[in-house]
Simulated scan of single mutants.
Amino acid sequence: MLPGGWNSNLLTETRFTTPWVRTEYVNTDGGARWLRFFRERGPEGGETVLESPLTGYTPALTYRESWNRGVFSPALVPADEYSDGLTRTGDVIRANVPMYGDGAGHAGWAATTRARTALYRDGELFAEHPAVGGKGFRVPPGAADYRLVVETERGAPAALSTRTSTAWTFRSEHAEGDDPLPLPVSVVRFSPALDARNTARSGGIYRIPVRVERQRGSTVGEVRDLTVEVSFDDGATWNPAQIRKGRVTVRHPAAAGFVSLRARAADAAGNTVEQTVIRAYRIASRN
């Protein structure tokens, strides 16, 4: 973005094979800000897209940025940058959440082989459609308890976050005005220290940074409770994990494989989020 709020439509593309290291030099005159994209295309047309926020840089400084590192899961981003998030406009509830944000916090979208968005009202299925996002759900104006569920699956060449499920619960009623009202929801974000191939060492104790990311502009409260479970058999069995000082402690098995993560968070007002990421990251021995 150029000074004065002007947008430049100049896009430059560099093709490469991951993992890859790139050095860029950017212009900062007048407070210019930069927007970057990462696109990964599969052999049969499947695509993953990551997008940075508008970022400003200080002259003569060096910045290091990491892209396309797990865990790939829902991310809540400022509504004026990528999407509306999870909102209500009048009596229409919409879920426009990037479901494959990376561990560095970039918004992310991906081609899916199956998707489902379902809205429950006062415990009953209200409506659903076989896609992520969509045109939204028109609901009665009165106050009610809602549960919004988004499920996705993706296939090869994607090897991580092959199945995800996110369920938000919140209370909502008619929203005045024409602007989307951010609903009181959160997501749980994991940022493990993975190598360039999104792999951690098998065997031993591993600690994963975790945080609860709240939707900006909403009435979501302070986090009251957070629990995390871990699975090493693609979700067939789960075991509770200890959380201490913002880190989840996981004991990796000796064999190579994948780690799946399941989390639940609640705020002081009773709003909740439940997330499951099957094959959140890979583990392997490093000889």
Rank of each mutant, 00 (worst) to 15 (best):
S186F: 05
A115Q: 06
W168R: 04
R121E: 03
G155Y: 05
T112C: 15
V97F: 05
L148C: 02
V97K: 06
G142C: 00
T164L: 04
E173H: 10
G108P: 09
R171M: 02
T113L: 14
A159S: 13
E124T: 12
M99F: 14
R201H: 09
G105D: 05
A111N: 10
I205L: 15
A107V: 13
E151W: 01
S165A: 15
A175R: 11
H129C: 02
Y120Q: 03
A193Y: 11
S172T: 10
T164R: 05
W109K: 07
E153Y: 09
D178E: 13
V150F: 02
D145T: 05
G105Q: 08
R138T: 15
L148F: 01
A104Q: 12
D195A: 09
A111T: 15
W168P: 03
R201I: 04
V139R: 02
V150K: 01
K135W: 01
I205P: 02
V132C: 03
D102N: 14
V97E: 00
A158L: 10
L148E: 00
T166Q: 07
R163H: 12
S172F: 03
M99G: 08
L183A: 11
G136N: 03
V150L: 03
D102E: 11
G133L: 02
T166S: 08
A110V: 13
S186A: 14
F190S: 12
R163S: 11
A118D: 01
A104M: 12
Y146V: 01
D179T: 11
W168H: 04
A158P: 05
V185A: 09
G103D: 11
R114V: 00
A167L: 03
R138S: 12
G101K: 12
G103C: 10
S165W: 14
I205D: 15
E153C: 07
A104T: 14
S191P: 04
P98I: 00
A111H: 12
V132G: 03
V187Y: 00
L183W: 08
R114F: 08
N198K: 07
A193F: 13
V97T: 05
H129T: 01
F170M: 06
A158E: 13
D179M: 07
G177P: 11
G204K: 09
G204D: 11
G142A: 07
G123Q: 01
W109G: 09
A110G: 13
Y120T: 04
Y146C: 01
A175W: 06
G103I: 13
P130K: 04
P130Q: 07
R207I: 02
V188L: 06
Y100V: 07
W109T: 10
D179W: 08
L181Y: 13
P157T: 00
Y206L: 15
P184L: 11
A131E: 03
G142M: 05
T152Q: 05
E176W: 06
S186L: 09
W109V: 11
V185F: 08
D145S: 02
R121V: 06
G204R: 04
G108T: 06
A196H: 13
A144S: 03
A115R: 07
T117I: 01
F190L: 12
H129A: 05
A158W: 14
A167H: 07
